[in-house]
Amino acid sequence: MNNTTEQVNVLCIKWGNKYGADYVNTLYSMVSRNLSRPFRFVCLTDEKEGIRDEVEVKSIPKIGFEDFDNQVPWTKAHGWLKLTCFANPLHDLQGQTLFLDLDIVIVGSLDEFFEPAGDFLVIKEWDKSDATGNTSVFRFEAGAHEDALDYLKADPEKATEPVRNEQEYITQFVDRQGKLKYWPADWCRSFKRHCLRPFPLSFFQQPRIPEGAKVIIFHGKPHPDDAVRGKSGKWYRKVLPTRWIAEYWR
């Protein structure tokens, strides 16, 4: 993965009203400032209103699984619809594809995410001792993991019973095939785990960017716009207004 002139794909997905078009537009803006390779930026969504023209808007793929194709409630919970990005074909996308969640803040270059060799690269989930990865940032070859969808469709109850969410499902599935690799630990850091200062410093010092971080992951509460205002979402978690987020998240 060292050909810097080869076009790559950057992919996100949006459904429902949890995140608006502004999150897609901001993600595109961050990517355009932090990726020097030629790239296509594609958003899978069924609602394109308000998304900027530079973004290629494509429908969430139909995979031949009624629950997903009809987007029944459980498929929208815990990220399950993200699995539709493993459709084959994935519209007209080919080649290396970097998936990014909408609620991340990019604070460094994305170029290096296309350099390590591997079939499936992902964040190592911070609070799990097994193979589970955090799919806020992962890279794969478009169309290469259709077998994960086939396994899900063949027996949905059996496939989903041992796992809590989409990221446990896909990373454990790929790990069983010996295809799972992780990003260097310092590339993707959790806002809550690695940026917030420990109590009682959190009452006096704003969260900081960990050394070597390229992407800050927001999981649960707060969202980036909450953190800018100093809103934590939890009574026991103090978050001072985090000014640097506004510098990067635009």
Rank of each mutant, 00 (worst) to 15 (best):
K76T: 15
K76W: 09
A77D: 15
W80G: 06
F86V: 09
A87N: 08
N88S: 15
L90E: 08
H91S: 07
D92N: 14
Q94N: 12
T97F: 12
D101L: 02
D101V: 03
I106N: 05
I106L: 09
L110Q: 10
D111N: 15
E112Q: 15
F113G: 08
E115G: 06
I123P: 00
K124I: 10
E125Q: 13
E125C: 11
D127S: 14
D130Q: 08
A131D: 15
A131G: 14
A131R: 14
T132L: 13
G133R: 07
G133P: 12
N134Q: 04
S136D: 05
S136Q: 02
S136M: 01
F138E: 00
F138A: 00
R139E: 05
R139V: 12
F140E: 06
E141Y: 04
A144R: 13
H145M: 10
D147L: 11
Y151C: 08
Y151R: 10
Y151L: 12
K153L: 10
P156H: 12
P156C: 08
E157F: 09
V163A: 02
V174S: 03
Q177V: 00
L180E: 01
W183E: 02
A185R: 11
C188N: 08
R189W: 01
S190P: 00
F191A: 03
K192S: 12
R193M: 10
H194F: 00
R197S: 11
F199A: 04
F199G: 00
S202R: 12
F203N: 05
Q206M: 13
Q206T: 14
Q206G: 07
P207A: 15
P207I: 12
R208K: 15
P210M: 00
E211W: 01
G212V: 00
A213D: 06
V215G: 01
V215P: 00
